[in-house]
Design a protein around this nucleic acid. Structure first.
Lengths: 279, 279
DNA sequence: GGCGGCGATACCCGGCGGGTATCGTCGCGG
DNA sequence: CCGCGACGATACCCGCCGGGTATCGCCGCC
């Protein structure tokens, strides 16, 4: 199986429409049809159920979609990491959610920079739940994640710290003076829905509440009185005066972990991980 | 990057010889040289340092070798799993070392077969340290591993049980009547070296001691008075009378784990894992 | 110094990837 | 009920790229 074929199939499987997929791939529709047919013939498996009005994934097709994405990520990662290894710049790329764990991040970067043999660390600030992707396709070498929000399956990790969570409310909200809240109270706040985060696929789940991409967006929405959210208590350090934080007694504790792709313990990475665990 | 190019590069990087690599790939040498040149040009990186007398990997080349193997495994896995999903046979393939944990394996298979919704489980008995590879390239869905001998990095796992280890000796050996031994005594047994196991790459480490591929080979060598070994105590159940087992006080305990590739929790796999943890 | 092994180069061919034109099917609206 | 339009499949053509053979250039070694 060639990566081009995989890329073609993934495009069609995502669009469920040969024309749009061909468009996205920058080729015409007929060669795309042929490529998919050949792929099916070679695998001996029907991947797509098509009529002239619709395209649907078969069971095998959805397996290939999932596995093919992972394989393409691995191929991309190989290319990117090789390029990085070749063209000077042997530094590390660390991915972190914009606005999360910032004081831990500064402490980590400072401590690591003081280590003997430290290399340049490029910080890649990204949206929610993007870090796993960045690690998998080689754009990042190491990331800060937050369990249980982020999935760590298939990554090597070390726990860094665990903290409880607080509810963020607009300053002056009646609940903002409470000593603590419960999850049931927070989710039921009238006029203040919990926002929706993008999933690992970049899509948003259905439901009420505004769609939110990063922490600054979120904080602004809360300050505007349009939403509320439950976040790790370390977010308090950069709260502006228009926001209030109230502990949530029964929210699950959040563990910040440092994660990296398996089988990639280079010296600089190992040093960074060791530094992190000693903070 | 196309998978063909990756396959070509991996072959050359492993052989460090264009002629032999071309031979292995079933093509002539000139197209192989061109393919590698094009790959280097596209990546903008020198992968191989060649003179007319030798070929050596650059730093970037060894990165691409490691990452490329993983990517090729992922592509192979995508193909194999898709084929399996398409052509009926939606069963599970379980990989286990031949001769290890056999009574746990039988118990697991029996218990799972009794579950509602159980599917066929094909058992793939393999050599030492082969299971990780089988999981990665899609030939197996789930495996039994033994920490700390087997690496579990990049795999999802559940612990099943932990046991201490015993030294295996030829029956009648002076030490065979001892109540317990220490590691230092076992490794120093005159005339009874510890055998060498293949690593994950299939190669054997250097050193004294016979090369061993699986447990039956090993047991036979011990019975013949040519070797000794330290194994989990569950190996006692199938000891023949020509072997003796003596507990080793300071050997690290061995944990049997069930492992599967990340992001692949199909219903049957989840059922099997759940059954295993309940044994 | 000549021989032989090895990677690179030169040159040729066939197949495959990609393009345009067009067909066959089917849902839908008048 | 018929015609239109959307969409995937088919037909056919072209240029490039993957692969082959022949040969060169380099260099270690007898």
């Amino acid at each position: 199986m060639e990566t081009r074929e995989l890329r073609y199939f993934v495009a069609v499987a995502e669009e469920l429409h040969f024309g749009r997929a061909a468009d996205r791939l920058g080729i015409a529709q007929p060669p795309l049809s042929r490529a998919i047919q050949r792929l099916e013939r070679r695998l001996g498996v029907t991947l797509l159920e098509r009529t002239s009005r619709s395209v649907a994934l078969t069971e095998a097709g959805s397996v290939l979609l999932r596995e093919g994405r992972a394989a393409l990520d691995a191929v991309d990662a190989a290319g990117r990491r090789t390029r990085r290894a070749g063209t000077g710049r042997p530094g590390l790329v660390l991915a972190a959610k914009a606005g999360a764990s910032s004081e831990l991040l500064t402490k980590l970067l400072d401590a690591y920079a003081a280590e003997p043999g430290a290399v340049d660390v490029e910080v890649m600030l990204c949206g929610i739940a993007q870090q796993e992707r960045l690690l998998r396709d080689g754009r990042a070498d190491v990331a800060l994640l937050h369990r249980p929000y982020d999935s760590t399956t298939g990554l090597d990790t070390e726990d860094l710290r665990t903290e409880s969570q607080v509810a963020l409310l607009p300053a002056g909200h009646p609940f903002s003076t409470r000593a603590e809240l419960r999850m049931a109270e927070v989710v039921a706040l009238p006029g203040l829905p919990m926002p929706r985060w993008p999933g690992p696929d970049g899509g948003y789940p259905d439901g009420p509440g505004p769609e939110v991409r990063d922490h600054t967006q979120l904080l602004q929405l809360i300050a505007l009185g349009r939403a509320t959210a439950v976040l790790p208590e370390s977010c308090r350090v950069h709260l502006s005066s228009d926001l209030a934080a109230v502990p949530v007694a029964d929210a699950p504790p959040v563990t910040t972990v440092i994660a990296w792709p398996p089988q990639s313990r280079s010296r600089p990475l190992a040093d960074l991980v060791r530094t992190a665990t000693r903070l």
